[in-house]
Simulated assay, not measured.
Amino acid sequence: MANNPGAKKAIRKIARRTEVNKARRSRMRTFIRKFEEALAAGDAAVAKTAFVEAQSELMRAVGKGVLHKNTGSRKVSRLAAQLKKLAVA
Rank of each mutant, 00 (worst) to 15 (best):
V62R: 03
V20D: 01
R27F: 08
P5V: 04
G42M: 06
A15L: 01
R29N: 06
R17E: 04
F51L: 12
T49N: 15
R17T: 05
A50E: 07
K75D: 06
G63T: 11
A61D: 06
V76T: 10
V52T: 14
A23N: 08
N4F: 11
V76I: 12
M59S: 09
V46M: 10
R24K: 10
A41Y: 13
A41L: 14
T49A: 14
A38I: 07
D43L: 06
G42S: 10
M28I: 11
A40S: 06
L58I: 15
K75W: 08
R60I: 08
R74N: 13
M1T: 13
V66H: 02
T49V: 15
S26C: 01
V66T: 14
A45M: 13
D43W: 10
L79N: 03
L67M: 02
R33V: 06
V66E: 04
M1R: 12
A45W: 12
N4S: 09
A40M: 03
L67E: 01
A23K: 09
F35Y: 06
S73N: 08
T30G: 08
N70W: 07
Q55F: 07
R17F: 02
D43Y: 10
K34S: 08
P5R: 05
V76H: 03
V46P: 01
L67A: 00
V20N: 02
G63F: 10
E53Q: 11
G72Y: 00
V88M: 12
R74F: 10
H68K: 05
R74M: 11
K8N: 07
E37D: 09
H68I: 01
S77T: 14
K48D: 15
A50I: 09
A38P: 01
